[in-house]
Design a protein around this nucleic acid. Structure first.
Lengths: 239, 239
DNA sequence: CACAACCGGTGTACGGAGTACACTCGTTGA
DNA sequence: TCAACGAGTGTACTCCGTACACCGGTTGTG
């Protein structure tokens, strides 16, 4: 590592190299380990050198988002809006899944970079091209929310399965008992999600299935509204 | 403030007082201003004193989440599942809206406290009581995602309207031109959201309407699945 | 060819964060 | 009476982001 840092030291830094290194570091060490100091070290450079290429850490994070947005496939041409949207979302999901930190960083961003705006713009374009009214498109985008990036809030994330696996089995059994007493409904659902194996340490449920289930439910809803020529019946503000 | 700190100094700290003060501080100064040091100062106490009542900052945040979960109304009795779920979600939304930091903190939590588990358990209970299968309930909970807390990812948050208002008007016009050229679809949708007034500085769209639109779309979808006796047609894992 | 401007990388330093650890001092139970 | 306890204190450590002055090599200009 040190020699690699030595070797690359001569070739000069630039914004792209900094961003790429940041992405790799976040991928490998986790987003919480991504500090300006650590990143500089990884690049064989003093921390302040980074500031010649990015304004501050916020901009670094923005740039990292841009990198992964850039990995999302462009919309497919000449298919219906529904499959175009579906495929694009699933492509975004693939990109996001490659970078576990991306969801959290994307959620934390409040400013929208050109790359993000570009993605959103072309996303909106798929609905408009499909004949959706501007009005319906607007609401539909809101309803999609973060699903347009291919992720959802993870709610369970082992509510039931997540107990330390190195505990004595009788401890685990006791915790299970307590769980069953206090949260019977969660337990039922969690057990069912484990594909009939009643094991305590589950591998969780099939996230991809869950995601597509909800996505298709939404898309079907959109289609129905579209076919009915839905408009928001909000009265225009008298003014 | 100092005298108030003086006055309350004698009555001893405890977990509840610490959490309450943290909530107030986050409400008033923003979550980014909530540091252990600042919180201690607000309580008229030295930072390390807090650690006698909470293990660390993570636990503080967990506790704060518990406080706001405690503010959510219990489920209404004796109505259909649909209105029960709807009302509960909207009640959660009210609680969350009272504390602007809550969404972000809730999203950041990975461990589930008893209060959170309790909320989820009773939430699941509404579907089961409405005759939903465990299977369907599971998927439905995933589809709801963070909407069960009454919030959604904000995607627009002034993509278009958010330009510094103190800019010279010709600057604003120029930015608008550029916007129109690069992101025509976003612009269309954003303009439509402004209720026909074409002003650049918009008050954004009606978040409550958007939220209920998507919520009802989902609930209607759930209802349709429920009536059709939907089951996940995933083949059981051959094993 | 000389020299000034420029610019990427360096070194030092500051303020603020979370929190470990040893302490003090008032209360309380034996 | 005295020991144990426990809430609050003081000090100190590590890590963070980044302001600011500096330096040394490249480059464009007289």
């Amino acid at each position: 590592m040190t020699q690699q840092a030595e070797a690359t030291r001569r070739i000069p830094l630039n914004r792209e190299r900094v961003l790429a290194a940041a992405v790799v570091l976040a991928d490998e060490a986790g987003i919480e380990s991504l500090s300006m100091r650590r990143l500089a070290q990884e690049l064989g450079v003093v921390p302040m050198a980074l500031y010649k290429h990015i304004a501050n850490k916020e901009e670094l994070l923005d740039g990292m988002v841009d990198v992964i947005v850039g990995e999302i496939d462009p919309p497919v041409r000449d298919s219906g809006w529904k499959s175009a949207v579906r495929l694009r979302v699933l492509s975004a999901r693939q990109s996001l899944l490659r970078h576990p930190w991306a969801r959290q960083v994307l959620e934390s961003r409040t400013t929208r970079t050109p790359a993000v705006l570009g993605y959103m713009d072309s996303f909106i374009g798929m609905f408009l091209a499909g004949g959706f009214s501007v009005d319906l498109t607007h609401h539909v985008m809101h309803a999609l929310g973060s699903r347009m990036w291919g992720f959802t809030q993870e709610l369970f994330e082992d509510s039931a399965g997540g107990m330390p696996a190195d505990l004595p089995p009788e401890m685990q059994a006791a915790m299970m008992q307590e769980m069953a007493r206090r949260y019977p409904n969660i337990l039922q659902v969690a057990m069912a999600a484990n594909h009939d194996d009643g094991s305590v340490v589950s591998q969780g449920c099939d996230d991809q299935f869950e995601f597509e289930f909800a996505l298709d439910l939404l898309l079907d809803g959109f289609e129905r509204f579209h076919q009915q020529g839905w408009t928001s019946e909000r009265p225009k503000l008298e003014r």
